[in-house]
Amino acid sequence: MLNVNDINVYYGSIHAIKGVSFEVNDGEIVTLIGANGAGKSTILNTISGLLHSKTGSIEFLGERINGVQPHRIVGKGLAQVPEGRRIFLQMTVEENLEMGAYTRPNSEVDPGIADVYERFPRLKERRRQIAGTLSGGEQQMLAMGRALMSKPKLLMLDEPSMGLAPLLVEQIFDIIKELHRSGTTVLLVEQNAQMALSIADRGYVLETGKIVATGTGQELLSNDAVKRAYLGG
């Protein structure tokens, strides 16, 4: 479904992503794990078209998408829930969801919102509230709901567990599994390697801009190097 082939991304003179290649197949949950600053978000933002690779290619559903403007990529069925959620804090919950459906025909907006409310009843209670007044967990749900509004075939999630209490993290991961069951392919970026690998079909370990290990979720969980570096021994 998604084919990333030898991408190199620079921030000015800093070489942030060094020849990274990986793929996500239809129906999988794939995770990219790695420490802070390893380049996980940079990779997602490059796929979304916000950053550009100097080399290589990114193909989505057989179509080259590097060089395509970010707002067109969303329309092709590739949505991202960005790091730090980045919901529109001054807009209401419902307006945030409407923005998520920006690329969809108007007739899909209301049914889409109804679907999101069914999945996240909490958001329905707060539909008229300004998003900035939501709790961290609710904001994460809104960010995910907003991304779902674009009816993505591939959903990329950047650190959905960040800053959330353990109970909420469980809840968010349950939602990710549920989304996956209902047919959405997921590319998950996480610092919480334990959680991410336990639900992933496959994973890639990223270190200072390079992929250093890959395997199924279970393989990586039992990999000694991965254990030492990311799973606390």
């Binding site: 001054q90 807009m91 923005m99």
Partner: peptide
């Protein structure tokens, strides 16, 4: 309006607005 709301979204966060499919 849809465009008007998109304007508010862009004014708040250009990157996030692009991820919604808004042409900034």
């Amino acid at each position: 309006g849809k465009m008007g709301k998109a304007m508010r979204a862009v004014s708040e966060d250009k990157g996030a607005a692009q991820l919604m499919g808004i042409n900034v």
